[in-house]
Amino acid sequence: MKIRINDHQLIQWIQGLITKFQVFYPLQDANSGVVHIQKATGSLNSDAILKPVSGVPKTSIKTFFMPQPEVIARFSIAAQDAEAFVLKEPGTALQTQVLLNIRPCDARSVALNSMPYAEDPYFQKMLKRTVIIGRPCDETCSTCFCELVGGSPHGTEGMDLVILKTEDGLALEVLTQKGADFLKQNPCAESAGLQPTPQQQGGQELPIVAREMQKKDLLALYNASFWPQIAEACINCGACTFLCPTCYCFDIQDEVAGTKGVRLRYWDSCMFPLFTLHASGHNPRGQKVQRVRNRFMHKFKYFPDRFGPVSCVGCGRCVKDCPVNIDIREVISLMQAV
């Protein structure tokens, strides 16, 4: 269900949200022109909310679901402490956070990451606390390709609410129960009582690229002759994996200061040789070509085989910011041709 709203009502609603929650939205830096997702403050940039900046934000929204780093446990190492060396939940109170004007590709990445993280208590908590208010893309960029990987510039997967442009103004549509509950507590114009728009139930067809990859022979793809050629220029910097909204691998490390310790979860990257290094010195992916292949095989073969869709939303961040111009779209077409 949706209602019509005007510019004034939208701004007023968001002004109200800022007083209650942490609200984040994409904003273009006046000097550099780079778009960053920033925390909204009292001096709200109304223009940037009404007419969202075009262009993919520099970083994805995965940081709101997988904080970098994230405390997963606390412990004490004080000898006299009866509970020394017992790991306990961090017990941090998590308040609602609102992500505003989120692009369909970024919103969809949350839905995709929810698959491997279905039973992860930390991710699920973050999911629960976050309301995603999406915004369809009016214009695409030269580096993005959401439709190729099963998304759409007007897709709403992963969003709770979406702000739409209509012929005579704006509309606010409710997509999930979480969105409906949020609107009930924080009404915008006449939004009270809005129910989620029924979503297509199950049987949603997988994108062509996912079905194609599922049919391909694992070892034929793995042993394809083009991997050394793709990997040749790669410097294993890992920028692609950190910018990627659907790269979700992590490392766990302990840190101790004085007698207090924390167990932390950090973003990790399969581009790094340490990622797979055994304590014995053996390394199953010691070569660069093996690591580069793993990144693409995971996205387009391993993930679809396990979960269905490909683990890519086509945001194009990796294309844009790769220092040696590796283009994931070329890799997809090479893989499709196997």
């Binding site: 039973e119 793995y222 992590f250 490392d251 290094l277 793993n294």
Partner: peptide, 19 residues
């Protein structure tokens, strides 16, 4: 088999052998 592991739950991505 053995590989480097972090989570042990099939999430963190370290120990994969292909799929």
């Amino acid at each position: 088999l053995e590989n480097r592991m972090k989570c042990g739950l099939g999430v963190c991505g370290h120990c994969n052998v292909g799929p």
